[in-house]
Amino acid sequence: MRSDPTFWILARASGLLAYALLTSSVLAGLVLKARPFGAALKPAVVTDLHRFLAMLGLGFIALHASALVLDSTVRISFEALFVPGLVPYRPLWSSLGVLAAELMLLVYASSALRRRIGARAWRRLHWLTYAVFALATVHGLTAGTDGGRPWALALYGGAVGAVTAAAGWRALVPATKGGTTRVRDRDRPLAV
């Protein structure tokens, strides 16, 4: 008797969706910093979108993990979702997915705790997003059942190309000037 493929299909679909949402969130974050569209895009709207896409991505990662545990095609224990190396299916490449999910959760949590941990620690942790994206890309290409299909290759290629281009734009074009603003830094008289 053939086993029900529902959870296997759900795992694959949610994994791909989580990757697309992660990519979109990274792109929104880069747009927020580089502001290539100037004042046309409100930074607050982009920030909300950036956060929402990351949260939705984490939700689909949870769905991806749950579906893998519930599926009977590959036996995956609950502990294997948290400890890299315990997944019997392509263990190395599956581990990258576990690691990417844990790092993404760490980055997301650090944003919620920014007031407590401080802007400097939050900013440093946010750099991990590039590692999350790289790990998720390699995980999808090597552990994903659909990783070799032309449409999947187009998805991963497009995502890497878009993030590379946006990161390059951010690096080459002067972003919003950083630092701290105090009223005495301004060159016009006090308004009040």
């Binding site: 409100k42 607050a44 920030t47 950083g178 630092g179 105090r182």
Partner: peptide
């Protein structure tokens, strides 16, 4: 003394709503 981290500000405008002066 008021300090604003320019790299963090995303122009939500909450501060302006609460303290326009």
């Amino acid at each position: 003394e008021i300090e604003i981290d320019r790299s963090l500000c995303s122009a939500y405008g909450t501060c302006i709503d609460l303290a326009p002066d």
